[in-house]
Write a protein that binds this DNA or RNA. Sequence first.
DNA 1: GGCCTGACTTTAG
DNA 2: GCTAAAGCCAGGC
Length: 106
Amino acid sequence: MDTLFSKKVYATVAKIPRGKVATYGQIAKLAGNPRAARAVGMLMARNKNPKIVPCHRVVGADGALVGYAFRGVEAKRAKLVAEGVHFTGARVRMSLHHWRPRPTKS
DNA sequence: GGCCTGACTTTAG
DNA sequence: GCTAAAGCCAGGC
């Protein structure tokens, strides 16, 4: 909601570039609480700002399409594939598409 | 103010 | 490699 945590979460997810994916734990960590992965998922589920929150780019810790997957696996998968994301069976290739929050500069 | 639920993650068998 | 159980956090009632 208007809480600092949710704001950070939405901001972080919104920063995920096209063709990249991030995990709930990663977002939770960037939001300030590496243990709040569940809370992050809840915020995505409620999705206050779907326009700035590409929740389909948020996947499980191992790249598995959790959450949204059970609501539209093919839709989410096709969406990611359309962005250039490769899949290994039912999981995203984290080795190639795991987004990183700017370690240094560009 | 307290309890329950939920798009998660990790460790153990 | 897969399945099961426990732990943490935030939101909603």
